[in-house]
Design a protein around this nucleic acid. Structure first.
Length: 151
DNA sequence: GCCAACGTTGGC
DNA sequence: GCCAACGTTGGC
């Protein structure tokens, strides 16, 4: 089993939306590194922290789980979508997505500020300056460390 | 295949 | 809204 952090702007789609929807497809990924992780590494049952970015208090707000492994993201074929990609062919889709289900919203988030202040978490990819991947992988140890800080 | 210009991300 | 950092694009 693998562990991940998914980033999203809560104004666009946050943990509260997922709680209400119960599950969602993680569409709109248009970065090759992230696509490759979804395609090659992500498995049903993997655990995912839900991180809120570009918001007043950035941090980890919830937990979800992969319910469907990578499959074609339909928004790439929709000319009206902001994620439309005219160069992607339906017989060979360029962009993929996974499905996740809601598991938990934490009573208190683990904030970016707190993560930065902790030596045992300082190596996390999400904290690294200039990191622009919307999905990063976590070791089991890091997943557990974070879990201990949340309820 | 290099690299400048441009666009996007995301914390502050 | 600023700006550092980085990915992508396209001319050569």
């Amino acid at each position: 089993m693998k562990y991940w952090i998914f980033k999203s702007e809560p104004d666009v789609y946050g943990i509260d939306h997922l709680k209400e929807d119960k599950k969602t497809t993680w569409d709109g990924v248009r970065n090759y590194q992230v696509r490759n992780m979804m395609r090659d590494l992500m498995k049903k049952g993997d655990q995912v922290y839900f991180y809120h970015s570009s918001t007043k208090i950035p941090g980890i707000y919830g937990l979800c789980e992969i319910t469907k492994e990578a499959f074609a993201d339909p928004s790439q074929f929709d000319p009206k979508s902001q994620y439309f990609d005219s160069k992607s062919k339906s017989e060979d889709p360029r962009w993929l997505m996974v499905e996740v289900k809601f598991k938990k919203k934490f009573k208190k988030p683990l904030t970016l500020t707190e993560m930065k202040s902790r030596k045992d978490l300082s190596h996390l990819k999400i904290l690294q300056r200039g990191n622009r991947l919307s999905i990063t992988e976590l070791s089991k140890n890091d997943f557990d460390l974070i879990a201990k800080s949340l309820s």
